[in-house]
Amino acid sequence: MSLDDVLGLFNYWMVIVLMMTGLYIVVSRGNLVKKIVGLNIFQTSVFLLYISMGKVSGGTAPILTGKPEVYSNPLPHVLILTAIVVGVATTALGLALVVRIKNAYGSIEEDEIQTMDLVAESEAETTGHRR
């Protein structure tokens, strides 16, 4: 592997580092708000992966100027533009769920919520009621 390879693939590697940081936050942290922030980091890194692939060396933004120019690839841009807005709409949905979980359980820590669920389940079993 030459220096050329390293420079040419560095963007993708950094994107993977960001992606894995996001994934690690999602799987290792129990706080639901922090999980959503982790998901957002993961999501942004996917955006950067797509846009990095659309870049052409020496190219410019894909807005026609009337002169012959090299344009970067517009297709990843279209894909990611709508994905960002859909992303914030789904983030809002996730946050709304977090608020409702807080109302129902009084906590937004995954461990505490699971413990409460287990306690409720065993209580239901001892009193003979099915949930």
Binding site: N40, T44, F47, L48, I51, S52, G54, K55, V56, G59, T60, A61, P62, I63, Y71, S72, P76, H77, I80, L81, I84, V85, G87, V88
Partner: peptide, 18 residues
């Protein structure tokens, strides 16, 4: 970074949304 990668429309959205 998105501006730097020529994705001006995307960068605009990300700044406003994110």
């Amino acid at each position: 970074l998105l501006v730097h990668l020529d994705a001006v429309d995307v960068a605009f959205t990300e700044a406003a949304v994110g």
